[in-house]
Design a protein around this nucleic acid. Structure first.
Lengths: 150, 150
DNA sequence: CCGTATCCGATTTGATACTG
DNA sequence: CAGTATCAAATCGGATACGG
């Protein structure tokens, strides 16, 4: 957790009443959270659970593409971070309900803003990518095979 | 990229004048963007460039921990997505200036909101993690015990 | 100064099969 | 229904060396 951090301009300062010190802002917590947010399924699940609680298989069907392994793993991580609550009903067969904690709900807002941005600018991004992929120029070097760029 | 999508509740609907159709919202663009946001360096660079344009080695020194490979790769991806502009001054020795495009600047806002959330709730997350790691119970399997406790 | 090429270990993810 | 176990594949990321 500790260790390296970087010199970061006060991007957030514009409306922080008690502005976060740049040093505190640095890579550590932000990087952590961005990586959690950035993994393939976490925020999708948070958004889903933001709508209403879901049962395990409900999530599995809703996401449709996620493996059981990843669904379970992601939910566990979210739970350990205090974003998701797991409630087991001791019925038979068992049923488990996942829901957002208050902390999870608070995350929903910034995440929704980002999701909103993604939706609004999807086309621009794709256009830019296509343009970049096409252009033999526009990139520093070669038209010859280069598998390194995705 | 087109294929699978998920059933998503209208989390964002609360203030979307022309609400994004749930189908459009789905996993595809959001997942893409979240993964970009979540990779180790992208958003750090976006935030850095949000402060002011930087030259290559300036970034390299500022981030301090990133390898040349990853710096270049990340910048290229950002460029291909249309978030970052790369300007080459044909001097000798060469100098290259990276800056945010308008699209990149627009991303800065939701990202800052998320970064802000991260800073504000870091402690809660860590506390929750520690609690979860400690507890022999609180986790589904656990050694030997009653699974039906809250 | 601004990169690229190559190698290699670490981490993440998916497919599949099995269980209380 | 709600998971766990195991294996293999893809991807990520860093170190190092070299090039225009």
């Amino acid at each position: 957790m500790s260790g390296t951090h970087t010199d970061v301009p006060s991007v957030l300062a514009h409306e922080l009443p008690r502005p976060v010190p740049a040093d505190e802002f640095a890579a550590c917590p932000v990087g952590e959270v961005f990586r959690r947010v950035g993994d393939k399924w976490s925020m999708l699940l948070v958004i889903l659970l933001g709508g209403r609680p879901h049962r395990y298989n409900e999530l599995h069907r809703a996401v449709e593409g996620i493996s059981q392994r990843m669904l379970t793993r992601t939910l566990r991580t979210l739970e350990s971070d205090g974003l998701v609550h797991r409630r087991v009903h001791p019925t038979v067969p068992p049923s488990v309900e996942y829901s957002l904690t208050p902390l999870g709900r608070s995350l929903l807002e910034p995440v929704s803003a980002l999701a909103d941005w993604a939706v609004r600018h999807e086309a621009e991004i794709n256009a830019s990518r296509a343009r970049y992929a096409d252009a033999p120029f526009g990139r520093p070097d070669a038209p010859v095979s280069d598998p390194a760029v995705r």
